[in-house]
């Protein structure tokens, strides 16, 4: 399947390459011959109806789901079944989940410190400095010694972003980061993500927040039934979607 529109940012060398990727869950085909190249510093928003494979796609990029066919290359390392390759990719790829997945028995700071200490091997002092610095960045440093359950959903998600950033990843994946939040907390999380985007982080976001897509995305990727149907810059995509399915999808989410 030929690659579709390529934006300006993608002219930079690709940091993530997804080639002819297949993923099946039993008889259900979640990803059907998907191709995607993400340039360094590029911000991509992936959208589509539920069950279209968008979450599966980004979960394959850090091998939380194992792809059944095709190739995925992240920062020059191909995801094989070798644990060393998988872990070296995961070190460079941060992920933020819909349900936060903070560690409930650790404080906010400890949540951020664990992986840098155990995986990157930095000292406790350095890990705490780094954690507090990034917690300050997501404006939550005054809660560093509280437990996740004591925070609001929006605060928890910002902690999750800080936790991922503490590993100093080159790429950040967001899997519907605002879908589990109360409406009044969506903005604080999106603001954090916009800030991150402005700093030049490479980002792949599965989200239905079209305002966010317009503001920061270099490219919107529309998926349906396991395939990438359409991709374009946000202005073009929202104003003039080319496929019927994209038109139908947009008419449903924009009231």
């Amino acid at each position: 399947m030929p690659q579709e529109t390529v934006s300006d940012a993608a002219a930079a060398p690709s940091i993530v390459i997804v080639e002819n990727v297949m993923k099946r869950f039993g008889a259900f085909t979640a990803l059907n011959d998907v191709n995607l190249a993400v340039g360094k510093g590029e911000k991509i928003v992936v959208c589509g109806p539920s069950g279209s494979g968008k979450s599966t796609l980004i979960r394959c990029i850090n091998h939380i789901e194992k792809h059944d066919g095709g190739r995925i290359i992240v920062d020059g390392v191909e995801l094989s079944h070798r644990l060393a390759d998988i872990n070296s990719v995961r070190c460079e790829v941060g992920m933020v989940f819909q349900s936060f997945n903070l560690f409930p028995h650790l404080t906010v700071a400890e949540n951020c410190m664990l992986a840098p200490m155990k995986v990157r091997g930095i000292s406790q002092v350095e890990a705490r400095d780094r954690a507090l610095g990034l917690l300050r960045k997501v404006r939550i440093h005054d809660q560093a010694d509280k437990y996740p359950a004591q925070l609001s959903g929006g605060q928890q998600q910002r902690v999750a972003i800080a936790r991922a950033l503490c590993m100093q990843p080159k790429i950040m994946l967001f899997d519907e980061p605002t879908s589990a939040l109360d409406p009044e907390m969506v903005k604080e999380v999106l603001d954090t993500m916009v800030e991150l985007a402005r700093e030049g982080m490479t980002m792949v976001c599965v989200t239905h927040e079209m305002g966010f897509a317009r503001e920061v995305a270099d490219r919107v990727v529309f998926m349906d039934r396991g395939c990438i149907i359409e991709q374009a810059d946000p202005e073009t995509f929202f104003r003039a979607p080319r496929t019927e399915r994209a038109k139908g999808f947009l008419s449903q989410i924009i009231h």
Partner: peptide
């Protein structure tokens, strides 16, 4: 919760550290 395991995977924690600390 399955999400706890996924968070550990995403952070590249080893199986030992995942069970020992989380």
């Amino acid at each position: 919760n399955k999400g706890q395991f996924e968070a550990c995977q995403a952070l590249a924690l080893s199986t030992y550290d995942t069970y020992r600390h989380i």
